[in-house]
């Protein structure tokens, strides 16, 4: 099969002797890029083998003892790891749902503003938080939610609470805070793509609808939303692959001893075991779990979209 294919290819490039010589420079660069890619992207995959050894710094990769699935067995019997999976998955899902919905709502509402003298500045402001690092965003959040911060001040002024709320010491509040942080940072940025999808909808549809007496809501419901459906689905699938990657920095920066049980994610688990405790093999095993689950999720999402006859990634 493959030989047939290659012979076909040869035929296709039958003139290639001369062409190949011309393409020499491209081929040389291709080799460079493949070597680079192999080292920085594919070699770490070879490192997955470490998960099946008892890797020690002293003995290195080639002389460490092979231990089979021991590390994975430990991992899945570790209550902390199970909890960490739950945290990662729940925070990832919350972020995905809320940031997607909010971005769509924002894009639609912004699109309804006809005056570009107002629209443009709002849009510019909405991008701002995306350009701030998580260090800055979590720092700002820390200040806003501190005992003297603006949120507590407002809550007290409106008489909603008597004592200051210690936001970062209440485990039940941690996930909502993380979700809010994502919303604050990315809503405007995520809306860009939906906005450009909205602008590519045929304007005559809206004209026809208004002649039929459709109001704003009707037009949004029956024209705008169906018009951007495929964009929404493609982005959802793409972001699902990142479900387990969602917000490791935030949890690391905002988490503290009091909320550890809900704030620790898979990545933080890897970091603690792999780097602080020097158990590289266990850290790698946890990393493999995350990568594999991510790929499975993206394939599942893609297939579901295919089944429903929707737009899909591949």
């Amino acid at each position: 099969m493959s030989s047939e294919k290659s012979s076909e290819k040869k035929k296709e490039f039958a003139i290639t002797k001369k062409e190949l010589i011309k393409q020499k420079v491209l081929i040389i660069w291709t080799v460079v890029f493949v070597i680079y890619g192999f080292i920085f992207y594919y070699l770490p995959l070879v490192g997955w083998l470490m998960a099946f050894q008892n890797y020690k710094n002293k003995t290195g990769f080639f002389h460490s003892k092979w231990v089979g699935l021991t590390k994975f067995k430990f991992l899945f019997s570790d209550a902390t790891f199970i909890r960490v999976i739950r945290n990662t998955f729940c925070m990832g899902t919350l972020n995905l749902i809320f940031t997607t919905v909010m971005a769509i709502v924002f894009a639609i509402l912004l699109n309804e503003i006809r005056n570009s003298g107002i629209k443009k500045p709002i849009q510019t402001i909405s991008y701002l938080p995306h350009f701030l690092s998580w260090i800055i965003v979590t720092g700002i959040l820390n200040d806003a939610l501190s005992s003297t911060g603006i949120v507590n001040e407002l809550l007290k002024n409106f008489g909603l609470v008597k004592d200051t709320v210690p936001f970062f010491s209440i485990p039940a509040l941690f996930w909502p805070i993380v979700t809010f942080a994502h919303l604050w940072k990315e809503t405007g940025w995520n809306a860009i793509i939906y906005l450009s999808a909205i602008t590519s909808i045929d304007p005559s549809l809206y004209e026809a609808a208004s002649i039929d007496g459709a109001g704003r809501w009707d037009k949004i419901k029956h024209i705008t939303l169906p018009g951007i459906k495929s964009t929404i689905i493609v982005l959802l699938i793409m972001n699902m692959g990142n479900l387990l990657n969602a917000g490791f920095e935030v949890q690391y920066l905002l988490g503290n001893g009091l909320v550890k049980s809900v704030s620790d994610t898979i990545d933080i688990y890897v970091l603690t075991w792999g780097i602080s405790q020097n158990d590289y093999s266990l850290g790698t095993a946890a990393g493999i779990f995350k990568s594999v689950v991510s790929i499975v999720i993206i394939l599942l999402a893609n297939n579901t979209a295919k089944k429903f006859g929707e737009e899909r990634l591949f």
Partner: peptide, 25 residues
């Protein structure tokens, strides 16, 4: 000649990654 192969080689890197520890080592 190697257009599609080179492209695939790089697209794969978008979805699969080795993880923190192997990269660090």
């Amino acid at each position: 000649v190697f257009r599609s192969q080179l492209s695939l080689f790089w697209v794969i890197t978008m979805y699969v990654n080795g993880g923190m520890i192997p990269v660090m080592i």
